[in-house]
């Protein structure tokens, strides 16, 4: 039922975060492909939204009309979403171990047609915020108090459509829309500042009329506090620039590989064992 009733404390969330991280590593290593490092950076944000009392949902009734909606615009990080949804009771943790296998609804990127509870099919970057605007406008028309949360990658901010959406959300003063930019500072071929440096997201997004906050997105307490602040802003759209580290939670293990980006590849079974031990 509505998660607010069962909001976890910061300490409980930290434990839950470890569970999510272990699931992310296990499912991607089992799959033999995927984006664990991109998933790991967003754990604290996804964790707080799903288990910190910030989203209304009912895992036994995924189409409940008044539910809040979560869109993972950076769809390649979907292991973090599958992990959270498994913990929320949408399906079992065994189910998600079929990630990326033929016949499994746990596809490499979110597919709402095959998996109830997924609110948007993403994977072509840049579209999630626009979809979120549509859902926020729809919720307003439906008068059901539904909120929309969209997680966007920092590399993804290079897509022009995101900026079209930022302007549009402000036009409609979508106080039921929250965007979280997972600024993990890396994208496919290197550091985001080297590939396409967009400067300060806070300055740019606030210039569009949004309420903005910049936080340490891998600090569970900071994420919860930022979401609390955002939840009280209802007259305009809200953005949280979540400064994170790609692969957070197992960084020493990734350091051993000499690749701190570690984009788009799973951990080997041996590395995964090390990572799981490190998390524990």
């Amino acid at each position: 039922m509505a998660a607010q009733a069962n909001a976890l404390s910061i300490e409980e969330l930290k434990d839950k975060g470890k569970v999510l991280r272990r699931l992310i590593i296990r499912m991607t290593t089992e799959a033999g492909s995927g984006h664990p490092s991109s998933s790991l950076s967003a754990v604290e944000v996804v964790n707080a939204l799903w288990f910190g009392g910030f989203m209304k949902y009912d895992s036994q009734n995924p189409t409940w009309e008044a539910r809040d909606r979560f869109i993972l615009s950076k769809g390649h990080a979907v292991p973090v979403l599958y992990a959270a949804m498994a913990e929320a009771g949408y399906f079992s943790t065994d189910d998600v171990m079929t990630l990326r296998k033929l016949g499994s609804p746990f596809e490499g990127h979110p597919n709402m047609k095959r998996l109830p509870g997924i609110e948007a099919s993403t994977g072509s970057l840049g579209q999630g915020l626009s979809l979120g605007i549509g859902q926020a406008l729809g919720a307003r028309l439906n008068k059901n108090g539904s909120n929309v949360f969209v997680v966007i990658g920092d590399g993804e901010m290079g897509e022009g459509q995101v900026w079209e959406a930022l302007a549009t959300a402000e036009k409609y003063k979508l106080g039921n829309l929250t965007a979280i930019i997972d600024q993990n500072t890396y994208q496919q071929t290197g550091a985001t500042k080297d590939v396409l440096d967009l400067g300060s997201f806070e300055e740019k997004i606030s210039a569009f009329g949004w309420h903005t906050q910049t936080i340490d997105g891998n600090c569970q307490k900071a994420v919860v506090e930022a979401l609390e602040v955002a939840s009280k802003v209802t007259d305009r759209p809200k953005a949280i620039i979540s400064k994170t580290k790609k692969g957070f939670g197992i960084l020493p293990v990734l350091e051993e590989t000499g690749d701190l980006n570690y984009h788009g590849k799973p951990l080997s079974p041996e590395l995964a064992e090390k990572a799981l031990a490190f998390i524990a």
Binding site: A120, Q127, S130, G134, A139, E164, A165, T168
Partner: peptide
């Protein structure tokens, strides 16, 4: 809803509206 001269956003906004019935 007139979202301005921004067809990419326009189309995805329509997709989002459809998912709310």
């Amino acid at each position: 809803f007139n979202v301005g001269i921004a067809e990419s956003n326009m189309v995805s906004v329509a997709g989002g509206l459809a998912s709310t019935g």
